[in-house]
Write a protein that binds this DNA or RNA. Sequence first.
DNA 1: GACAGAAACTTAATACCGTTTAGTTTCTGA
DNA 2: TCAGAAACTAAACGGTATTAAGTTTCTGTC
Lengths: 212, 212
Amino acid sequence: MGVQERRAREKEELRQEIMEAARELFVKEGFDNVSMRKIAEKIEYSPTTIYLYFQDKGDLLDCIVEETLLNLTAKLDSLREGRDPVVDLKTGLRAYIEYWTVHPNDFRVAFMTDLKALDPNRAWRCTAVGAAMYGSLRTRLRECADSEVLEIRDLETAAQAIWAAIYGLVALFIMKPHFPWVDQSTLIDTVVNSAVDSMIPKRVAQLEAVGS
Amino acid sequence: MGVQERRAREKEELRQEIMEAARELFVKEGFDNVSMRKIAEKIEYSPTTIYLYFQDKGDLLDCIVEETLLNLTAKLDSLREGRDPVVDLKTGLRAYIEYWTVHPNDFRVAFMTDLKALDPNRAWRCTAVGAAMYGSLRTRLRECADSEVLEIRDLETAAQAIWAAIYGLVALFIMKPHFPWVDQSTLIDTVVNSAVDSMIPKRVAQLEAVGS
DNA sequence: GACAGAAACTTAATACCGTTTAGTTTCTGA
DNA sequence: TCAGAAACTAAACGGTATTAAGTTTCTGTC
């Protein structure tokens, strides 16, 4: 029964080809400015073929963004060193911000396209990976709390506050690229330190600030 | 020459009527789900008439969002008490966040519609008011720095870091309404205090934290 | 009061869009 | 060889923003 396997493989290959073409176009032109017709033209199939592989344009986007988020997740996981949880936490946050500043158009596609905001039913893949990433943040924060150095009143509140600050910086960088930002690296450090250090006793916070 | 005045007044009235109808529809259905035809139908004119008053759909959005931002600006200005600059700053930040959580759809229209992100040329009205609001934040921060209580290394960096944290919280509230947020008021206070207090010597920061 | 011209508004068309229906072609397994 | 499944497509539907050209309405002047 090698035929069925080949067929399945071919089907998967075309699926990947569609996603690759769509990602390239979405990133270059923006989700709204890319039509199913344009994607079809790029892969030299008829527009209707895409609907055999994806429910609709939103589903296609969901799959693409899921891939992006999984890629980011892998990158963040690879950076963990496991020595000092606070260092790991800050390193992860900085890496998150820098990943998106390097791939701004992916961020636009992932977070600045209406669809995902509307209902988690349609963008369930993204929602799932996003939830996993938030879970990872919370875990790292708990590790900080479990070590002797941290004073966290409410872990959930702390995690959400940090998420907000980090997310806001990325979103503004990307939304207002022409704004007269101060030195990017300095600003990132300021936001990360401000968000994390406010949960940490002064003594340790100062040590961290010096170390970075 | 009372006729020309009346004509001008009538013209302005229709302009306002268009904006009112469009705002209502945009807020209810979202920018992308509202067509010029629907707006025209609501005001009982032909779609083309709108183009006599606004360059295109994007221009119409720009004008509407400008109005929203000016309204918010007025609200923020009215809250200034001028006694303690740090209190004024935090009050303003909280008010900013709460304004958008009360009008989430206006925020969607204002900040989560592609157009504005693309080029400041097209959304110049919003860009201008937005710049004024950022200027106001910087002014308040300078007032804090000028009073005896503050230690701000770089004012611009501090302003941008605060802006990021505050903006991020609002954006996440609105983008992920189904996320299991902790108590909203607590979270807002945490983010505001974390952002502002990191610029303030410990002694004062603690006083502020108690006061809120 | 008649009337030229400006202003306001509309009709009809252009060139797109996402998606669906109803096919056609290609391939597979018996 | 051939029935049926799988893969793919042509054509259409009902929508979109925007524009060009035409019509109606109003105004100021004679």
